[in-house]
Write a protein that binds this DNA or RNA. Sequence first.
RNA 1: GCUCCGGUAGUGUAGUCCGGCCAAUCAUUCCGGCCUUUCGAGCCGAAGACUCGGGUUCGAAUCCCGACCGGAGCACCA
Length: 484
Amino acid sequence: MIEALHEKKVKERKLPALDVDEEVVMRIAPNPNGPPTIGNARGIIVNHEYAKMYNGKFILRFDDTDPKVKKPMLEAYDWHLEDCEWMGAKPDRVVIASDRIDKYYAYAEQLIKMGKAYVCFCSQSEFKRLKDIKEACPHREQGVKTNLEHWGAMLGGKYGEKEAVLRIKTDIKHKDPALRDWVAFRIVKEGHPRVGDKYAVWPMLDFESAIEDHLLGITHIIRGKDLIDSEKRQKFIYEYLGWKYPKTSHWGRIKIHGIGKFSTSEIKKGIQNGIYAQWDDPRLPTVRALRRRGIQAEAIRNFMIKMGVTETDIAISMDTLYAENRKIVDPSANRYFFVHTPAHLTIENAPSTVAKAPLHPNIDRGFREILVDGEVLICQDDAATLTAGDRIRLKELYNIQIMSLKPLKARYTGDDLAKKGAAIIHWAPIDGVEVKVLAPDGVYEGVGEKDVKSELNNVVQFERFGFVRIDSVDDIIRAYFAHK
RNA sequence: GCUCCGGUAGUGUAGUCCGGCCAAUCAUUCCGGCCUUUCGAGCCGAAGACUCGGGUUCGAAUCCCGACCGGAGCACCA
């Protein structure tokens, strides 16, 4: 019978089936210019989940081909790997684009020889002008030999930034302006954190990704719909080289209610300006911040999988993620008292006693014991609601009646559990431990039970306050707030 | 301006390809109630949607056309 009660019909939400021929190889391709955000997490989880569903492979590829505008961070490579693993999405293989630049050069040369790419010396604005009126620039008609020479000169460092690019020849009269003769390589004279100044000619995403997806044998790509046109550009290369493009699907933009812009570059700016302490500041939507707050990997997974993959732009609330997390964390989290902005309460005639409060309300897991001798701390928020004469119960302790407010005083009125409806508030011992809770909406300082010290790294519930993760235990305890 | 894509309850989703089983699914949120020594969990209940207008059809959320709204691309960013 109990079994039956537990056997709730939770229809497991699964991702829609993929169009699969044989094996499945999928990848994510982040730029390691910061740690993964919750947006990256979607890519990690959905792609990995599909690979898992079909016993396929999951590849992590770092698209770190812009040493200037989106300069990679050396630490971030590890962060991505760490966060993938933490979310249960350990890649079967890790590839770093900046290790493989020579391969891209080889394909570039091949395309030049085929007459499918040319070195263009137009300024950006001049090319755009011509492109917009569907006109070829003079360099488009250069012979293969000329192009090879110019390409060699580019690689040889003869030109400065912006002086030359390699373009893929598509269809200059294509009805979609986004597809006309796009840039495959440009010159960037800036050190790369991994390979230094070994290269000055760097591929653009469209080229690098096109080549890599083929080399890695990617069968399915799922990514943001902002890359839909990118796919159309890349298909020109696939056609020229006789390759088969992976099957693709896309998701729309995702916004999270209550969180502003959270692109990696925005966050980086915030950290540089001192608005955020670090990449795992509890206010940030990075995976590491969520982890620090006690959001479980499984909750993020469930959240992402239930969200599915649709091209509609969505705005979702963190509450949904929190709800997922609460389901996981509620049974395992021990309960403790924590009182923020404490108010001292003296209780007259109270017997010295040891409060025995269960560690969990529904699961028998023992008690914590707190010695109380006529004085406790209560939350200022609760104190503010009191009036002289009020009878209330201190949770797991005894009943009191408020005598006065100015010096906050009460008298002991008995141990009997009050009947329904009586106000019950929590409290903390006067000799408790100092606790600081870092929450997205600010810092809460107060006092908690000493036993909290034994919960380092665990998620606990501060009763009537919320779930927190105990982050450090020294003279004071620091906790990160997860959610109510 | 030119291309492309999308619009199901507050939010996210199922259904749309192959019209009828959809007086539309599930989750979350919100609102009641029960339970509870937490404002947590659990239980019960309720509310809440096919963007609009035409067309095809016996029948349309599902097909067609148009409008409106939203998004993306047109970078020497990813």
